[in-house]
Design a protein around this nucleic acid. Structure first.
Lengths: 349, 349
DNA sequence: TCTTTTTTTGAATACGTATTCAAAAATAAA
DNA sequence: TTTATTTTTGAATACGTATTCAAAAAAAGA
């Protein structure tokens, strides 16, 4: 009963579902050969103005549109790019998708969207992309299985990892300097007088988590601070609040928490406040990403801004270069970003 | 200086970028004809087990994958569906995208993702989809221009509107019964003793906004309540907080706000709290959608749940039916959903 | 005017697959 | 065994475009 369907049939006379018109049909009407029609639509200049006019008129009459599959069969250009995303529900990646789409569609490319749950994209998930002859594949927040990577390389398909990095795959990548960022965050927290530290990670085998933890720990080690609790998470709100509850029941003294990303941080803040503690008075929280929500007054989260647009621009640039030029070596671009100070951290001095 | 690039060239010897193997190559190795190879990969049963084995072995050796474009050229099935979305940054629609992908990819379809800023999708935005011969187009949170709609119909492409509806376009649609939902919400607020009402709308020409406002107003009219302020918004957080500030400077007495969607409601709540008022003690707030954030303790928003999964399932069902069957009349499915009570509304009795 | 050069054009072909149709092979029936 | 029937196979073709190549037309030069 909860969700009743209400069907209303609309009487609709469909126009006779005719076969799609082809360049041949246009040619017949315009009184030219198929070749000439093709030349017009391929942007070839060697067509007399008179015939071009005629052809365009005929095409308009039929609402003719060239068949992209037939075209790509012969040009070997599909103008399609696969984008494989994990975590599309994370606002950071919604934004990533939007920006990638805007940039690439401006260049005439089309995106085949693939959502994956896997930390490591399997070959089966991309064989469809191979069958469609995409010219490139963008992978966000995930890695490729080595067989998938090999397959892509075999087919000569450009690959760019976004926000992940691994030496083994030998593919291009764009990401933030997570190591340096974490060092800077740790330094900031130490200098604000914090004594007892916690880090809530993403999946422990991701480069982002590894680098962020490494940088964070290194600074504490330098200062001979040993009071660091590491709590596992998986880059979701729920894992953040779970981790925070866990921390609070086990260790009452923690005075600052560095979260693997913003969405974790929001979960952490909500859980801490629910337990009756205040932020930043009792506990300081720092995130990573600077998603839009982090500046909402309910959170006002101090966080690390990843230069999203520049990162995407850079990834697109790498991708197009790999597509256009024959033997581009894979490149890695690391960006800095910067700390955004808000109200989730307080000095403890 | 802010975002320095750090380039590291990785020396990488690409395997000789060879031409893709074709069914002909596989046939040569397996010692059969191209036709037989094709039969194996098209799932045709009339192939002897012996040759099938040989062919699969040869294909595996070459890492052969059939060319989807050549295939679709002849079968007239592309297994591609276009999904045109507005507002992908709204968590509601991120979820929509994820679910559509999961359902459709399970059925073997691939999504071409298109992001649009427009309330009304223009023909130019979908000509690419036509060129690629997508078998269907899903439009979320937007409508089609009449020429775009005509073009799709001309090409015999299935169209399903998601969360929007218009009689003019004569296309299938799936959406919530916004009118009834709004009536129920209004009734609830009235019965909780509220006296001074506000509605923050989406774009004023969208069916969702029109229906929600209509239902809401109708209930107030029935009860002879005239104290209703309508504030324009555009289904974003910012428009929500702006509208709330506007309301509060103009009208101090408002004791409840019905928001066009959840993301508006979050903006409203933050703005109200920032001004020093409390929710629900001073003002009640109701949203629409039941996105995940609405249950976060910082908000705990009372809202209308749209049965997301069922809606997508239904849209997929309509789409597949239109694709498979020749002359399906367009259908409209309206779902109910239900009110989710949380802590953003208080009784004023 | 005629010749040479350049531009425009169409016929033919290739892209990589699925499918038709008739021949060949295998199987069943007699 | 021979004949009838079914299954498997390959040659040929179609899908709709871009491109090559040679011929035709137009323009430029003499």
């Amino acid at each position: 009963m909860k969700n009743d369907y209400v069907f209303m049939a609309i009487d609709q006379t469909k126009p006779d579902a005719r076969k799609n018109y082809t360049s041949e049909d246009v040619a017949a009407i315009a009184g030219v050969s198929q070749s000439t029609v093709s030349r017009v639509f391929a942007g070839n200049t060697n067509v007399s103005e008179k015939k071009r006019k005629k052809i365009l008129a005929a095409a308009a009459k039929l609402d003719y549109k060239p068949n992209a599959h037939a075209r790509s069969l012969i040009t070997r250009k599909t103008m399609m790019i696969g984008i494989v995303m994990r975590n599309i529900r994370n606002p950071f990646y919604s934004a990533v998708l939007e920006i990638f789409h805007n940039r690439l569609s401006a260049k005439g490319y089309h995106l085949i969207f693939i959502n994956s749950e896997n930390e490591e994209i399997q070959e089966s998930e991309i064989t469809k992309l191979l069958e469609y002859n995409v010219e490139g594949v963008i992978i966000t927040d995930a890695l490729l299985s080595s067989s998938a990577s090999k397959s892509l390389r075999r087919y000569g398909i450009a690959v760019v990892l976004f926000n992940r990095y691994t030496e083994e795959l030998e593919s291009s990548a764009v990401f933030c300097d997570n190591y340096m960022a974490a060092k800077q965050i740790a330094t900031y927290l130490v200098e604000m007088g914090h004594k007892s530290f916690a880090f809530i990670s993403g999946p422990s085998d991701t480069s982002t988590t590894i680098d962020r933890l490494k940088g964070f720990k290194e600074v504490l080690d330098e200062r001979k601070i040993t009071d660091l609790t590491i709590e596992p998470g998986n880059y979701t709100y729920e894992s953040g609040s779970r981790a925070a509850r866990e921390l609070m029941t086990r260790n009452k003294d923690i005075d600052c928490i560095f979260c693997g990303n913003d969405i974790i941080a929001l979960g952490v803040m909500d859980a801490i406040r629910t337990s009756g503690l205040r932020i930043p008075e009792d506990v300081s929280v720092v995130g990573f990403d600077n998603i839009r929500m982090s500046e909402w007054p309910s959170y006002s989260l101090t966080t690390w801004e990843q230069p999203l647009e520049e990162m995407v621009d850079s990834a697109v640039e790498l991708m197009l270069k790999e597509i256009d030029e024959e033997d581009t070596p894979s490149q890695v671009v690391m960006m800095k970003g910067h700390l955004v100070l808000r109200n989730s951290v307080r000095s403890r001095r």
